[in-house]
Design a protein around this nucleic acid. Structure first.
Lengths: 238, 238
DNA sequence: GTCTATATCCGGATAGAC
DNA sequence: GTCTATCCGGATATAGAC
């Protein structure tokens, strides 16, 4: 059996990226070790350095892929769109992204909390123009009386914070609600609850498709467990 | 001039705790180094180990003080209280706490994102009973028709996430809004915006004292800058 | 209580045989 | 492409003079 040329490389790079995401998400940049990543990927540390010369380059590669991923869901919208549709769809997508990609959400969170040393430029040059556009659009909705006179920037922050919370603080939420992981129906319920509260906060009615979902939903669609549990608190230093 | 016995110790411990908070908040537990903390506190590393035998014990001491601090503002409330008053006061206090103590907010965030290895027990044994009480109280408000039928747990998560966001993601928010740090009037505006949106999300009217504040406020009361900028992204490894 | 010097180990990164 | 052996700096922590 022959393999495509470059197949081994591609496989290894994938394994490394997956392992790196886990370790960086659970230890932060400085806390993560190349040894740990190599072990998790199942390859010797020297091989890891063969594929990624430095720890920094691996981290940057992960951040860069993360940006593409989240940018693809940036949910563009214009003043002529329907506010209730746009906002509920936006909340929906952000919660779903956090569910499908909890690790990149956590990596991003840690990076920003630590002062965004690797992402400052991106935030200033990419996120900020996008943000200002959205603020302007929401402001137009307000000016036309299509939503309540909330502060557009703080509405955006409210959507960001509330949706990301379920991915980043999964440990706390799952402990408080006495669960081991999120189920598909939990996710739909989160979407519904946030849409209900935030849209009402803007004086909007909830789109029809969400009015029924607020009570129950089948849960046979589990995809990616949101919890990670790398080695569950194995701080060697205890 | 004589000093009280134990005065030196107390002073040093204070300096160490302050430095530790900064470093742990900006690098996470594993990423922080005792050398860095000692330097920031202005004492030799060996002295640091004289006061705190291990890195772990220093970290635990900080977490423990953090818990007392935030518990003191846990904002108890009962079914007979006025929902609008309770919720607006709660949001107010949480935003203010994040403004006054951004570092402990960040430390907590990093700890939870990393799976809460040092806090799991506390969340299960202290936070959870508190959480269940609050859920029950809010549920009673709903049953008596005093607020809209939102999911109580998700309302709590919404308040937690939206208020903490301004402390934890300060770097991003300040970059997007083109500011160097929060001003007192920003904080009042944040409180007002969140109260307006979240209370409306529960079908509540805004308490009188917040109806005027939503436009302006003097800003001569600056206290603690929310931004930390330890050494601003000095990742040696670049 | 303070601080220099050091023990011990683990970190990132590389050399070079296979 | 793979992997053992190794370099070296920096990590936690301690010994012991002052």
């Amino acid at each position: 059996m022959k393999y495509k040329p470059g197949q081994i490389r591609e496989d290894n790079v994938q394994k490394i990226l997956a392992a790196g995401e886990k370790v960086f998400a659970s230890q932060g940049f400085k806390g993560a070790s190349m040894q740990q990543i190599a072990d998790l990927a199942g390859i010797p540390k020297a091989n890891l350095h063969y594929y990624f010369k430095t720890k920094d380059s691996l981290y940057l590669e992960l951040l860069s892929r993360m940006q593409s991923l989240w940018n693809s869901a940036l949910d563009d919208f214009t003043p002529s769109d329907d506010p209730a549709e746009v906002l509920s769809r936006w909340i929906e997508v952000k919660v779903e992204m956090g569910y499908q990609h909890p690790l990149s959400s956590k990596m991003f969170a840690m990076e920003v909390i630590q002062g965004a040393p690797h992402l400052r430029r991106h935030i200033r040059e990419v996120t900020r123009p996008w943000f200002e556009q959205r603020v302007a659009t929401i402001q137009q909705w307000i000016d036309h009386g299509r939503i309540a006179a909330v502060d557009p920037a703080h509405l955006i922050f409210l959507i960001w914070s509330s949706t990301q919370h379920y991915a980043d603080y999964a440990t706390q939420i799952l402990t408080l609600t006495d669960q081991r992981r999120y189920r598909r129906k939990d996710i739909e319920h989160i979407k519904g609850s946030l849409i209900r509260m935030i849209l009402a906060g803007c004086g909007l009615n909830i789109p029809e498709r969400w009015q029924t979902v607020l009570s129950s939903q089948p849960d046979f669609l589990e995809v990616s467990p949101m919890q990670i549990e790398l080695q569950g608190g194995n701080q060697r230093l205890a």
